[in-house]
Amino acid sequence: MSEHDRKGLYNLIFRTVFVRMDPENAHHFAFRFIKLLPVSPVVASLVRRSTGPHRSLRVETLGLTFSSPFGVAAGFDKDAKGIAGLGVLGFGHVEVGTITAKPQPGNDRPRLFRLVDDRAVINRMGFNNGGAVKAAGEVGRARHLRNRPVIGVNIGKSRVVEVDDAVDDYLVSTRLLAPLADYLAVNVSSPNTPGLRGLQELDKLSPLLTAVRDAAGTTPVLVKIAPDLEDGAVRRVSELVVELGLAGIIATNTTLSREGLSSDPSVIAKAGAGGLSGAPLAARSLAVLRVIRASVPSELCVISVGGVETAADVQERIDAGATLVQGYTAFLYRGPLWARQINRGLRELRRNRSK
């Protein structure tokens, strides 16, 4: 079966089956398949032969070797249970979480909504996860697996903790997870935890990042920011990251904006509050990337995420200065061979450039 036929088959399945399912239920259904992939070494090996990125795609950053510049953004694997399976599918790194110090159920369902006409998603999940202790067990097991992807751990504030007590809350997760993670991402930009985005203000952000950096030891620390920050604020955060000696920046999280959507206004209104991700975020995410890269040294790791769907999208981010690129929302629309498509497409693009 050709690549075109595979894409067509998944698109047919999506539009006849998955689109009729509750989005969160569909995610859990697909995730069960992902977790099963590495159970059989024979099956995993066969799939990896097809999906594994070519050695020419390797990236050296954060003191680590990434098999591909393309990875899974936080939010897809909230409890660190699908790391091995996602690696089998061809992702060079998996950023798990967001993990909070305390277990929490997240917001009430429904809390995940598709905007199919925009190839987008609105979510107000609210950091639903089993907590840092459970996540530490999962990450600890995964880090000893052969052929595993690089493991990033994204940490956030527990909902029951006041913003003024956020530093101590983040430090609980840092101390448990930093020794096990390949890198640590400090999430201060989700729109679904009250008060969280206020931590992006420099007077709050500086002591938080300083404390996490010091507690993380040798584990690289990055901060994840929102696309809704004005350019001046993005520059100031970038300068702070350099001043504190952090390893990098992840840009961007989901947006509160609803501008330029093609979906029926009633569908958008029904989805309600939450962060928007997917294709409509692409332009702003790329713009933020360019602001950051113009503000930081070339060696600083900048991970670009938001609206990425094709190999051309990934290469555009790399050309604009991204060290690595992440995706999530297009996984829903592209299916399980998405990373394979990206990796093969990147190699083809680069071969054509070299001719």
Rank of each mutant, 00 (worst) to 15 (best):
H28P: 05
F29N: 15
F31D: 11
F31I: 10
F31M: 15
R32P: 11
R32I: 06
R32G: 15
F33N: 13
F33A: 15
L36F: 12
L36M: 14
L36I: 09
L37Y: 08
P38R: 10
V39W: 10
S40H: 00
S40K: 01
P41Y: 07
V42I: 10
V42N: 15
V43H: 13
A44S: 11
S45C: 02
S45E: 04
S45I: 00
L46W: 05
V47H: 07
V47Q: 10
V47M: 13
V47F: 11
V47R: 07
R48E: 13
R48H: 12
R49V: 00
R49P: 02
S50G: 13
S50F: 08
S50T: 05
G52A: 12
P53Q: 05
P53L: 03
H54Y: 01
H54T: 10
H54C: 06
R55C: 12
S56E: 11
L57S: 03
L57R: 06
L57T: 06
L57C: 04
E60N: 14
T61Y: 03
T61L: 03
L62G: 09
L62C: 07
G63M: 09
L64T: 11
L64N: 14
L64H: 12
T65G: 04
T65I: 08
T65Q: 09
F66N: 04
F66Q: 06
F66Y: 04
S67R: 09
S67I: 05
S68N: 08
P69Q: 10
F70W: 11
F70H: 08
F70L: 15
G71L: 06
V72T: 14
V72Q: 15
V72G: 13
A73S: 14
A74T: 01
G75M: 06
G75W: 00
F76Q: 14
F76K: 14
F76D: 11
D77I: 01
D77F: 00
D77W: 01
K78W: 00
A80T: 05
K81M: 11
K81W: 08
G82Y: 01
G82E: 01
G82P: 01
G85T: 08
G85C: 08
G87M: 04
L89W: 00
F91P: 05
F91G: 12
F91K: 05
G92D: 06
H93L: 09
V94S: 14
V94F: 01
V94L: 10
V94I: 13
V96H: 03
G97S: 09
T98W: 00
I99V: 12
K102A: 10
K102T: 11
P103R: 13
P103L: 09
Q104C: 04
Q104I: 03
Q104A: 09
G106W: 00
G106R: 00
G106D: 03
N107F: 07
